[in-house]
Design a protein around this nucleic acid. Structure first.
Lengths: 229, 229
DNA sequence: TGACGACAATGGCGCAACGCAAAGCCACCG
DNA sequence: CGGTGGCTTTGCGTTGCGCCATTGTCGTCA
């Protein structure tokens, strides 16, 4: 579900008189502010991916953006809030890709499953740093709380959605004796394993192992619906 | 290779005059010291697994052990050194299990591969906290440097060893057209994916997905040598 | 058009936490 | 009984977060 676009509103709790103002105010100040917010988020992603959570401080983020640390505190009220916004942003990005590749209208269940495979692979190829941020966030127990709120529910939803598609394929294709749950969980393991391992050992990136193995498992389960390439 | 047993010696650079002293000195003080070292390592593992790297401090470790923080500094000269010792300890533990299950004399290549599967699964089941520590260490870029020195070489060696076993099986079994490299890499992905995912989402632990899927892939590649159970 | 108000952004400060080094204490070995 | 070695106490220096007063910038209303 392409949820909230709340990202930009993150830090502002000021009462703007509730007047409906979203439409008109072609305001250069507001534009500048939102641009700053995005630049801060981008810088944070960059820093986390490159140096890890531990060495990321407000002043370094500010330095990387080219502003003072107080600006960061101004837009996001605290460090934790900033991290929350970052994870929300990345989650939304993944969601957008998933919607495009999996939920596009007119696709067959088989095509949707292939779309899901594509989604995992493309995301990792296009934005390795984003994947790194996901991994970093979900490792440390403290930041993991944030991940549990924002990232994990989506993750579980994607796995469940894929599982439903597999069930549909099994039913319509007349397959019996296929252990759908194990298969879905395996695909999940593979995706996260690939992401984690690539983050850990970037040199081995960009081989086609993930895709090949997933197709192998799918072919093994539904030979008439998934061809090996 | 069951490398160094240097763990206990980690923090001491004091010149003990080079005199060979490893044998005799049945010294209660020394025993106490080594017990302290082990307790510190255990406490550190516990804390990292439960709270993450960020919130682990020297004083918390000391508090958890029931001593002053300076004791920790005394045994390991710095925080980084302590972490290095912890990772070394865990690495040695895994190595011991691997040697038992994979390199035991008299095993056939097939049994060795099954032993490797067992190894990954048992380690995660017996010591989930140890796995968590591995994951935590290899995520943050800073601690990752330590992991790259101590953990990663072993990891790569295990994968390579498994790959060699698969090659041997393929050769002796007369299999052709099996993509060994992809298979070995897939098993690697699965292991790390399972570890990472279980660390991330502990509630789903202890299903048999990892084993089932690995056996499925092995059966698919070498049907006469690996049976589905 | 000029003054006001909202909003973006700055620099600096206080407080707390942490790592680490120095010096002394005390048990135990020879 | 001298001294080695494990362990504690104390305190210093550094670093980071978050708040404050303030400045600069741009719409808006008289």
């Amino acid at each position: 579900m392409a949820q909230r676009k709340a990202t930009a509103e993150a830090g502002k709790s000021k009462a703007t008189k509730g007047a409906a103002n979203d439409a008109a105010p072609k305001d250069r100040r507001r534009e500048r502010g939102e641009a700053s917010i995005q630049r801060i988020i981008d810088a944070t992603i960059e820093l986390i991916a490159e140096e890890g959570l531990a060495s990321v401080t407000m002043q370094r983020i500010a330095e990387h953006v080219g502003s003072s640390n107080a600006l960061v505190v101004f837009h996001f009220r605290s460090k934790e809030n900033l991290f929350r916004a970052v994870l929300q942003y990345l989650s939304d990005q993944y969601d957008a890709l998933w919607v495009t590749l999996v939920r596009a209208p007119g696709l067959s269940p088989v095509e949707r499953v292939l779309g899901a495979v594509d989604c995992a692979q493309r995301f990792a190829r296009l934005h390795p740093k984003w994947v790194s941020v996901f991994v970093v966030f979900s490792s440390d127990r403290k930041s993991m709380q944030i991940y549990n709120e924002i990232g994990l529910p989506s993750d579980l939803a994607y796995t469940a959605e894929a599982r439903d598609l597999l069930i549909e394929i099994a039913r319509d294709g007349g397959y019996t004796g296929v252990d759908i749950d194990t298969l879905a969980e395996s695909l999940n393991y593979l995706v996260h394993g690939a992401w984690y391992w690539d983050h850990l050992n970037p040199s081995s990136r960009d081989t086609d192992v993930l895709r090949k193995t997933m197709l192998l498992l799918l072919h093994q389960a539904f030979p008439r619906h998934f061809e090996l390439e």
